[in-house]
Design a protein around this nucleic acid. Structure first.
Lengths: 329, 329
DNA sequence: TTGAAAGCGTTACCAT
DNA sequence: ATGGTAACGCTTTCAA
């Protein structure tokens, strides 16, 4: 920057100001400085800028998996929403593991992000402490934690299953099964299962759960789970799956066995992946507006950083979900 | 850090050293300092550390889309490979747009990454200049650029199509169509199309291309493209698609029309997505080992940063691809 | 609108 | 093994 200043015949302070849109500087000097910078191939060092201004231009975000269309949509909404604030997302994926999440949170906090966004409400005690003490807005998303650390942008995963079960029941299905992961590491998946079990009880139906594989449960596992389910409960007439991926796996397994969907078995998924619309038959599923979650988080971050809202208030934004009825159920 | 030093009764220099694994410090002081840090809730400021040491612990990476299983796999391989070096990935997605890529590259270079990794070889002149002048290793991946900026980790997209066409021809298909995007923004997709056209010429077959929609071409667009193709060339006997997603869309469209796959029409895709294995019929496709690409990039970054290899040498790593023959073709 | 000086929180470097 | 001092490259603050 000193070199640029020398070439432009100004002080480095003026260069610093000319390079930022908001700071005061005459158009003339601005132009002169931009040319000098260009000529020297100068690129601002935002590490130094961040240290000095105490604004790093980062928001830290953890998601369970990078290879998941729903979370990718959320990240997209978040990134796009933060873009106008010139804030970048520092992304970490946890593989549904709270210890990995803790490690990410610590190494991300070292970068002094201006806010931290995590998926869900299940964290290690130390992770909670780290976030609480960081002195920045904390946002938990994709869930409605029992005891939130800070703000929340999400929906009730339990409710999605309850609503879907109700819908299946309305359509006449009575012997409804649930396919999900074998561990509770995927807390949102576990909540969906809980919602299913509650709904079954309320509707007076027997719960039939096939837990199969570690999260994230894949398409292939969805097929395996359906096979297992048919063995245990051959009379099943509908299956609710923890995600569209497992639902598609189940659908494919039905197809291979010559079972009609719906007819022999109805299938419902979760997430409204592109796949759900495109599959034959198309999949009945839950649209959770993943990108909206990201957009709303970005909005909340903006409000918090601009001081529009009181940081001490804990804002909870409920993102409405909807059942998408298609051919499969 | 000064507070921690005071509490532990040492200098801040000792704290700095105690907190790093490599620096010399007695186990005794280390423990004392860790306790003090814990008690105060101290988290290292790596912004300041980076400024001082000129090592930010970042590698900048741009990919076309975050919502693409192939690129997500590459990012996973890269992230995991860099993890042991305590290097984080700074991710930007370009939406297949070179101008957006340029913006990302500039704002990422401001963070002073220790290396920069970009997808493909098509960049704006300014982006090329920025990367060349950054003084850090530059790696282009997922492609074999004609004039690489630095190192390359990839494969020939053209070859994948040529090989697949040859395979289809060997199986007796003669009226082979290609479904891809309408723009050349997806340069890898455009290369695949080029490979297809070359192969058709060599095999003495008429090329039949349906260009449909902007990249990334979706499942739904794959279906639309197949419909259009059948209208133009009703006698088509095989379709090569630019990706498994469009291939699946085409497959679904066939299903809806009551066309047998294979039989009436064979379908081949690209990318070996989970979907390709799980679809009924399963999709013949190209496995490009996306995660290996990321792993190899990470390895290259490690070599370059450790000075094991001469930075001036331009390393090209060819990642082998393979045709996965399944039911659809 | 511009400039000078004093940090920001760490590590490199040189001593001890 | 530990400590003192001088950067690192910016921005804040204050002054002109």
């Amino acid at each position: 920057m000193a070199d640029v200043a020398r070439l432009a015949g100004v002080s480095s302070m003026t260069v610093s100001r000319a390079l930022r849109a908001d700071a005061p500087a005459s158009e003339e000097t601005r132009k002169k400085i931009r040319e000098a910078a260009d000529q020297l191939g100068y690129v601002l060092n935002s590490t130094a800028a961040g240290l000095s201004s105490r604004k790093t231009g980062f928001v830290a975000v953890t998601i369970p998996s990078i290879n998941n269309s729903n979370f990718a949509d959320t990240v997209r909404g978040l990134t796009d929403g933060l873009n106008s604030l010139n804030i970048q997302v520092l992304l970490g994926y946890t593989d549904y593991d709270a210890d990995i999440e803790e490690k990410h949170i610590e190494s991300m906090l070292r970068r002094r992000p201006e806010a931290i966004v995590v998926t869900g409400g299940a964290h290690t005690p130390r992770a909670r402490r780290l976030m609480s003490n960081a002195g920045i807005p904390v946002i938990e998303m994709w869930d409605l934690p029992d005891s939130p650390i800070g703000h929340v942008v999400g929906f009730s995963n339990r409710e999605t299953s309850r609503t879907m079960c109700q819908r299946l029941h309305d359509k006449g299905y009575r012997r409804i099964g649930f396919i999900g992961g074998a561990s509770s590491r995927d807390t949102r998946g576990a909540d969906r299962r809980r919602g299913y079990e509650e709904a079954m009880r309320e509707l007076g139906c027997e719960p039939r759960v096939t837990a199969y594989g570690d999260p994230p449960i894949t398409m292939r596992q969805g097929g395996g789970a359906l096979a297992e389910m048919l063995e245990t409960w051959p009379d099943i007439d509908a299956v609710l799956c923890v995600s569209d991926l497992s639902a598609f796996g189940a659908l494919s397994e039905c197809r291979r066995r010559g079972l009609q969907v719906p007819g022999d078995i109805a299938i419902a998924g979760f997430g409204n992946y592109d796949l759900a619309e495109c599959a034959v038959p198309s999949l009945t599923t839950v649209e959770v507006h993943a990108e909206d979650i990201g957009r709303r988080v970005a909005e909340l971050v903006r409000e918090q950083l601009s001081g529009e809202t009181d940081n001490r208030d804990h804002v909870t934004s409920l993102i409405p979900f909807e059942i998408i009825e298609r051919e499969s159920a």
